[in-house]
Each structure stands twice: as structure tokens, then as C-alpha cells.
Nucleic acid binder design. Structure first.
Lengths: 214, 214
DNA sequence: CCAGATATTATGCATCCGTATAATTTCTGG
DNA sequence: CCAGAAATTATACGGATGCATAATATCTGG
């Protein structure tokens, strides 16, 4: 009655790493740091736990890789959200706002991931650096969109004023992201985007609100 | 060389429970769920781990109690923030905004606590109910302050519009709470309150910005 | 001041955790 | 088609964790 050894197929190292990273992100989103054990990661990725150590020196190294991959994906999604550079600045800003307030950027998964990682970020300088870089990249992009949309109407805020506007608009986005993620059933479809566009439009004195959604 | 048994003094049950609850909150804020072990809780509270079970059936019950206590304190702090009912509505709204964006309501501790509890909230219906109740209590209070400040100037928004304004203003507060807590060193003192007052003042078309801080 | 009640400590246990290491299967180049 | 490389599995280990239970010190009522 000797247990037969589990069969397996070799896989591309890149693909295996990606599977392990995806498993960490799924588990972090679903159950928080407590649910992220090497055994759970291995099961989710469809391998045995020894393999993790073959690709990552420690569990912490794997989690670092997962966080970096997640933030890179988020940054890329934000970059793509505004659309072609050649489009009208106001349309680009509108699209950026809408994308920031709808899945996959804004949903309960990203909230859970943020919450699951924040304590590690506080402790690990490398993760903190990744965190700050990603945050500022997002805000700088928003600020650039704002400045161009204003410039189109011959309004040219100074650096300080541009920073203040970007922080305030970013706060609206973050706050609505937070509220939608924390209370997913408390808002009608499209309501969050409508409120966000309205509030940011008011702050910037720009016609952002989509008439169809009001 | 028999180890002498640790001396102790009996304490009021209420006080002991409060000590244990405070230990859980401190540990959650400092190290997240991973740092909240029965041994760490006991050490922080100055007792031995067996005592925890004497007051709470399980660790989970203690954590529930800690979360409930924290949310009650936050709700009470928000209630007190606006000041006397008799004061001018605009002043009360100003104070509420300032209090919401400064310690002890807004700091890295409350962010860490939120992050540390959010996964438990998702899993435990009782904690979820506490969470939603506290959130809506905060927003309802903000909405009432907004409506009164507008009414003072003979502006009477409908229920839908009042809700939209409250959600948007609340998003500004939540978003800035988030940003200040996530990047504590990225903002000058008073900058967050100034930006928040400015943005909310613009959204509501009310003179909220404090001239001294600009 | 003492005896009962109980708050508190001390110890033990089964389980899970991350990591280390050995055994085996799969794949590739010649 | 086979031999060597290495990807993958299997097993083991020390320590931590939550919970249970036994032992003991502290307090209170009479």
C-alpha cells in the first residue's frame, strides 16, 4: 500500500513564479496575511510546498515579489486608462477618473490587497519604496492630466496650486475607492463614478460630469 | 532552585477586560493580525496567557470586543468633534472636518487598525454589522452638518442631492485620511486640513477654507 | 482571622508554521 | 535512447500557536 508519488510536469520558470505570485495575491485578498501560509500557497498554485523554496529563498521574498507585481500591474492599468496621448485632455481625464473608480482598479480585491500588505510595507524598506513610488506615479499622472485639461482653457496653475489640486482630486478617488470597496452594496451602479466626476469637476471647475449618468 | 510563582493582585473585571482590549488594539496597530497572539496580548497586558481564557471564551471573542470598543470610541470622537449644537453650523462643519483629518481620528494608527481588522470584518457578520453601522453613522452626521450649513444660506438640497454631497465630502475625508496615514511624511503640518477644507468648501460652495492656513 | 470563592499563574498538548534536506521524476542534448 | 541536470515531490525538525487543565495565590464575608 505504498503511496504512489505524485506525478508532475516541468514548467517554465517564469510561469511557475507567476503562478506562485498569483496564489499569494489571491490568498492575501481572500483571507489576509493570516491565510498566506506556504502550504496554502502551494496548494493554490498546484504544487507542493518544497517547490516554493526552489524559486524563492524565503516566504518573505515571494511576498515581496507578489507585492511588486501587483503594484506594477496597477500602475500600468492607470497609465493605460487615460487612452491615447493625442486625445482631448478633458476626455483623457474623464476616462482616467472612470477607470480609477471601477474594476479592476477599484474593487474589494484591491482594498483587501492594500490592507493585507500595509503592515509589511511599514516594516520592509524595499516594499515601502515600491509603495511610495507607485503612489506618487499615480498622483503625478493625475496631476499631469489636470494641468493639461486646465491649460486647454488657458488656466495655468502654479506648481503649488497644481499639487494641491492633484492631492485633493486624488483624495476623492481614494476615498471613493475606499467606500465602494468597504461597502460594495451601498451604491447603485455608476453612482460612484458620477459622484467622483461631479466632485472633481467642481474642485477643478471643469465640465467633467457625464450628463447621461445624472 | 524552584522558580517562585509570579505574584499578582486581583483587579476589577472591567479593568482587566479593558487592558486586554487595549493590548489587542496596540498590537493590531503595530504589527497587524500576525502580531496578535495570545502570548503577545498577555505580555502587553501584563498578565499570563491563561487569564485571557478566563475573560474571553476564545481569542476571536476578544478581538471582536476590541473591534467594537475601537469603533465605539471613533464614533464618539466624531460626535464630539463638531462641538456644541448651538454653535454656528459653518463653524461646526469646519471643526468636524479638522478633527476628521487630525489625530486621534486620522493617523497611522487608525489606518493600521482598519487594515488589521478588515479581513475579519469580511468573515464575521457581527463585525460587518458593527462596521457598516459606524460608517453610516459618521456619514449621516456629516450629511446633517452639511445640510444645516447650507440651510443657513437658504440652500435646501433634496434628499438625493444631500446624499451625493455627503458621499463626495466623505470621500475627500476618507481619501485624505488614507493618504496621510499611508504616507505620513509626505505632507506639511496643516496641509491636509487646508486641502480638505478647500476641496469640501468648493464642492459645497461654502467658505470653509481657513485663511490663516493658506 | 480563617475558610471558601475565584482570579491568576503554570504547565501540557495537538496542530500548524517556515525552513531544511533527501529522494525521485521529468526533461534535454548528444 | 540514455545519461546528466534540475525541477519537483516527500519527509523531517524545531519552534510558535490556540486551547485545555491543574495548581496556587489573593481577596472577601462572616
Amino acid at each position: 500500500m505504498a503511496e504512489t508519488r505524485r506525478t508532475f510536469t516541468r514548467d517554465d520558470p517564469e510561469s511557475r513564479r507567476a503562478d506562485l505570485v498569483a496564489a499569494v495575491l489571491d490568498l492575501t485578498a481572500e483571507a489576509g496575511p493570516q491565510g498566506v501560509t506556504v502550504r496554502a500557497i502551494a496548494e493554490r498554485a498546484g504544487v507542493t510546498q518544497g517547490l516554493i523554496r526552489h524559486y524563492f529563498a524565503t516566504k518573505e521574498a515571494l511576498i515581496d515579489a507578489a507585492y511588486t507585481a501587483h503594484m506594477a500591474a496597477q500602475t500600468e492599468a492607470a497609465r493605460a486608462a487615460a487612452g491615447p496621448e493625442a486625445d482631448p485632455p478633458l476626455d483623457r481625464l474623464r476616462r482616467f477618473i472612470a477607470a480609477s473608480l471601477t474594476p479592476p482598479v477599484s474593487d474589494s480585491r484591491t482594498i483587501s490587497l492594500w490592507a493585507g500588505f500595509i503592515h509589511l510595507i511599514r516594516r520592509d524598506p524595499a516594499m515601502l519604496a515600491t509603495h511610495e513610488r507607485s503612489y506618487l506615479a499615480f498622483r503625478d499622472q493625475l496631476q499631469a492630466l489636470i494641468v493639461r485639461a486646465l491649460a486647454e482653457r488657458d488656466r495655468l496653475p502654479g506648481a503649488d496650486e497644481a499639487r494641491r489640486l492633484a492631492i485633493a482630486c486624488n483624495a476623492v478617488l481614494d476615498g471613493l475607492w475606499f467606500e465602494a470597496g468597504a461597502l460594495p452594496d451601498a451604491f447603485a451602479p455608476g453612482e460612484i463614478v458620477a459622484i467622483g466626476s461631479g466632485a472633481i469637476g467642481t474642485i477643478l471647475a471643469l465640465p467633467l460630469a457625464n450628463e447621461k449618468e445624472r
